[in-house]
């Protein structure tokens, strides 16, 4: 149980980072941390007590494997988060080019 709670704590660290940090890059890092927390949670959902890696090979019996499906889901989620992160970093670099700063309190022209 404590592992799940730690996972939740990691997620909250990510959210805190997104909400409180002013630096654009730190916000992106926050998004990445939160994404990792969710991926970790998915992998934890798959865990069986004393299970082994779900690899099917000719010389082993299928006994007490952990659930393989969430691991495939984690891979997909990682690919998606890669795309999001790459796009965010690209936007951040362009923002730096235009505004000359990474501070979001100074990047605030849209209001109302």
């Amino acid at each position: 149980m404590s592992v799940y709670l730690l996972c939740l704590v990691l997620f909250c660290v990510g959210l805190y980072c997104i909400l409180r940090k002013r630096n654009v890059i730190k916000i992106i890092v926050g998004v990445v941390i939160a994404e990792y927390a969710v991926n970790l949670f998915l992998a934890l959902v798959a865990y069986r007590f004393e299970g082994r890696a779900p690899i099917f090979s000719p010389d082993q019996k299928i006994l007490n494997m952990v659930d393989a499906l969430p691991q495939a889901l984690v891979l997909t989620a990682i690919v998606i988060s890669l795309a999001t992160t790459a796009l965010l970093v690209g936007i951040a670099m362009r923002i730096y080019e235009k505004y000359g700063t990474f501070d979001i309190t100074k990047i605030k022209e849209l209001k109302g």
Partner: peptide
């Protein structure tokens, strides 16, 4: 795709 992402970010830096 991954190499293109890398290229895009690197070239952006070179341009800047």
């Amino acid at each position: 795709g991954l190499f293109a992402i890398f290229l895009a970010l690197v070239l952006l830096k070179f341009e800047a």
